[in-house]
Design a protein around this nucleic acid. Structure first.
Lengths: 341, 341
DNA sequence: CTGTTAGCGCTTTCAC
DNA sequence: GTGAAAGCGCTAACAG
C-alpha cells in the first residue's frame, strides 16, 4: 500500500502538505493541491486507518451493542442495526457489532481500548445493565430506547404517551366512545422494556380525561383470540380497539375478530400503535402509528456523532413524534354516518 | 487511560517487558510477570487498539459485507451476521458491518486502509461483483455461498446436491416412488443465488438415477396453493414432496395440501430442504434438511482467520454435509404398512 | 502558503 | 531474562 510518504515524494511536497491537502484543514494553492490529488489518484493512496486513529485519537468507529436474543423479533432488530449503520456511514463512521454475551463486555472493551469513538445501545430494557455502564464509561453512548433511569444519558425513542393519545384521538374523531387496548403480556410489563408501560399509562390517562368507556386487556398467549374474547365480554359495545402488543397477536387479530362475526372496519375500528410490524401489508391492513426505526436511528447517531466530535456529551432524551398511517381500518361506528369530507 | 508506560513504571520494568509479559512471546520470570500483571490489574490497563494495530500490522477486525435488501428474508441474514460475529469473537476478532451500497465500496475501503484483516461475504449470488473484487484485493476474503466462479476464492456453503439426494433417500426409504419438488420462482433461478439451481440439478439427477416418477414445479406467487395444484394435476399419485422454496411457500404449504383433502404425513410425506425457516415449529411441523448458519459461519470464519494469521490464502471450497431432522412429516405411503423397527 | 518534527502507544528487533 | 530504541503511518503543533 502506498503511504503518505510515497504521495509526498510523487507530488514533490512534504507529507504535511499531503495531509492538509486531503483534510482541508489549512489552505493550499490550487496548483499544489492538484499535484497532490493527482499523485493520490495515481498511487491509489488511502490513509492507513490505524495510523490516522493513533495520531488523531479518533477511530471513526461506533460500536453497536445488541444482545440479539436469537428468538425475539429478529427482523425488527435487523432493521435497527441496518439504519444505525447506514446513518453512521453518512457521517463517515463504521460500525462494530457487539452481540450476545459480548454486548456488555464489548462495550467496555471497545471504549477502554479506544477501538470505538462511541456506542449505540439497541434493544434497551428498563433495568438495563448497560445504563450504569454507560454512566461510568467516560465514553459517548446513546440509547435507542429508554432505560429506567435516564440521568446522565443520551436517549432517543418514540413518544409512546403521545402515540397512545394520537391513537385515541383518531378513534374519537371517527366517533368512537367505547374503546379497548390490547397491551402486552403482564410478564413483559413487569420485567421487560418499559415502553409498553409508557403506552399503557398514556392510554389510561387520556381515556380518563376524555371520559371514554374503555377496557384494557393483557394477552397470555401468542394469539389474539383470548384477549378479543375478554374485550367483547367486558365491553360488548366496543367499536374501537388499539393494539400495542406483540407481532403475533397483531397478525392474528383480524381473524380473532372475524371469529366473533365482527369485521374491520365495518363493526370495529382498529389501530396498531407502537409496533414495527408492517401492518399495511397484513391480509386485513391495519392503520398504524408505527415505531420508525429510521427516525430513531438517524436521530440517535446524529446525537452521538455530535457528542464525539464536540468531545463532550450533553445528556438528554429525545422523544420522536408519532405519526398516524391510514390503511383503512378506521371508520365511523356502525349506525353512524361517515363524516363529511 | 493507562498506557504501557504507566504499567512499566508501576512494575519497575521496561515497556518491552510489559509487552512480552502480556503476549507471552518470550519467557519471563514468574516474579516479574506477576509484578507486571499486578500493575496491569491495578491500573486497569488495556492496550490501545490503534497503536497495537499500527505496530503489529493487524487490526483484529473482520469486515462483514451484506447487502441486506430491506425486504428479503431478514431473519435469516440476521442469524448469519450473528453467527459470524460470535465466531469472530471466539478468535479474538471484532466485526464491522458493511451494508447496502457500502457492501462493495466498504470492502475495498476497509481493505485498502487496513481497517480490516479480512472480509466475510454474505448473501452471495451467482454473478456477485464481490467475487472479482475479492480476487483483486490482495486481502483475505471468505464467501458464505458460492459465486459463479470460485477460482482463487475461499467459499463455504451447504452441499445442496447432497441435500437433494438425502431428501430423496428419506422418501424412498419410507417407500415413496412418486415424488415432487417445489423449487423457487423461475426468476430467482435465472438471476439470483445459484443454490436453487444446484439443488434442482441434484434432485433431477438422483431421481433419474433411481428411476422414480417425479415432477418439478416453480411457484409464481408467495403462496403454496398454485404449485400444489400443479403437482396434483401432473402427478396425481404423488406421495412425497420436497420443498426447496421460499419461506412463504413453505409456511403455507400444509394449508394448501389440506385444501385438497391431503394430510401430512397420512397422505403425503414432506421434507423441507435447503431453507432456514424453523419448520419444526410450524403448525404442521415439517421434517427438514436445513441450512445450518452456525456450521457455515464457524467454518468460514475459521478459514478466514487461518488465512489472516498464516498470511496467505489457500483457495478452496468447503461444502457442509447436510443433516436430516425428523419432525414427523415423513411416513410410509397410504396403503403400505409402516416399516418394522 | 509550505516544510520540519514531535509525538500517538504499541511491537519487535537488536543488544546485553 | 531484560532493556533500549527503532519504527508502524499518520496528525498537528511549531516554524518559517
Amino acid at each position: 500500500m502506498a503511504t503518505i510518504d510515497d504521495v509526498a515524494k510523487a507530488a514533490g511536497v512534504s507529507i504535511s502538505t499531503v495531509s492538509y491537502a486531503l483534510s482541508g484543514k489549512r489552505s493550499i494553492t490550487t496548483a499544489t493541491r492538484d499535484r497532490v490529488l493527482e499523485a493520490v489518484v495515481k498511487l491509489g493512496y488511502q490513509p492507513n486507518a490505524s495510523a490516522r486513529t493513533l495520531a488523531a485519537n479518533r477511530s471513526h468507529i461506533l460500536a453497536v451493542t445488541a444482545p440479539l436474543h436469537r428468538d425475539t423479533e429478529q427482523a425488527a432488530h435487523m432493521t435497527f442495526a441496518l439504519e444505525v449503520t447506514k446513518s453512521a456511514r453518512s457521517h463517515g463512521y463504521d460500525t462494530l457489532l457487539l452481540v450476545d454475551d459480548d454486548a456488555v463486555a464489548g462495550m467496555r472493551r471497545t471504549a477502554a481500548t479506544s477501538l470505538s469513538d462511541g456506542v449505540v445501545v439497541l434493544d434497551v430494557d428498563a433495568k438495563d445493565e448497560r445504563a450504569d455502564l454507560a454512566r461510568s464509561l467516560g465514553h459517548p453512548v446513546v440509547f435507542i430506547g429508554i432505560p429506567a433511569s435516564t440521568s446522565g444519558l443520551m436517549c432517543v425513542d418514540m413518544d409512546f404517551e403521545a402515540a397512545a393519545r394520537l391513537a385515541i384521538d383518531q378513534l374519537v374523531e371517527a366517533g368512537h366512545t367505547a374503546i379497548a387496548l390490547i397491551s402486552h403480556e403482564m410478564g413483559i410489563l413487569e420485567r421487560g422494556s418499559n415502553f409498553p408501560l409508557r403506552f399503557l399509562d398514556g392510554f389510561v390517562a387520556y381515556a380518563e380525561k376524555l371520559g371514554l368507556r374503555y377496557v384494557i386487556t393483557h394477552p397470555t398467549t401468542n394469539r389474539a383470540h383470548e384477549p378479543v374474547e375478554d374485550i367483547l365480554k367486558r365491553l360488548p359495545e366496543v367499536t374501537g380497539i388499539v393494539l400495542n402488543t406483540s407481532a403475533d397477536v397483531t397478525s392474528t387479530f383480524a381473524n380473532a375478530l372475524a371469529y366473533h362475526g365482527r369485521h374491520i372496519p365495518r363493526d370495529v375500528s382498529v389501530i396498531a400503535a407502537g409496533g414495527t410490524l408492517p401492518t399495511g401489508r397484513l391480509p386485513v391492513p391495519l392503520s398504524a402509528i408505527p415505531i420508525d426505526p429510521q427516525a430513531s436511528c438517524w436521530t440517535a447517531v446524529g446525537l452521538l456523532v455530535g457528542a464525539v466530535e464536540a468531545g463532550t456529551v450533553t445528556p438528554r432524551t429525545i422523544l420522536i413524534e408519532p405519526e398516524y398511517h391510514d390503511y383503512g381500518s378506521v371508520a365511523p361506528p356502525p349506525g353512524r354516518p361517515r363524516k363529511a369530507a
